[in-house]
């Protein structure tokens, strides 16, 4: 890895931007007038956390975190779909 700070600056910008995005989502999670808003906020937070994990992997130059990111993606999707199914049908399991 070169000593130039370009990538470090970009990584710092990425961490700050995704952290700010998480805070905005948290605000919507607290405010959200309907339950659907809250589910949407949590879904977006999961996606932002995946990006943060990947950025951490770039910063530490390791590939150890990709399984964690994949698990986050899968469980976030399953959680969103089951919340919506519960709101649509009133039960989860057929």
């Amino acid at each position: 890895m070169s000593d130039a700070g370009l990538l470090d600056h970009a990584l710092a910008f990425g961490f700050v931007a995704f952290g700010l995005a998480l805070l905005l989502n948290l605000l919507r999670l607290v405010k959200g007038p309907t339950t659907t808003d809250r589910v949407l906020a949590v879904d977006t937070m999961v996606i932002d956390v995946i990006a943060l994990i990947v950025l951490l992997g770039i910063r530490q130059s390791t590939q150890a975190y990709f399984e964690a990111a994949l698990l986050f993606a899968m469980f976030g999707f399953v959680a969103t779909v089951s919340f919506c199914r519960f709101m649509l049908r009133g039960r989860l399991v057929e």
Partner: peptide
């Protein structure tokens, strides 16, 4: 690529709010 991606995510969360 990192800067573009972070900007898009920030815009998305700003729109959500």
């Amino acid at each position: 690529l990192i800067v573009i991606g972070a900007s898009f995510a920030l815009v998305g969360s700003w729109g959500l709010l």
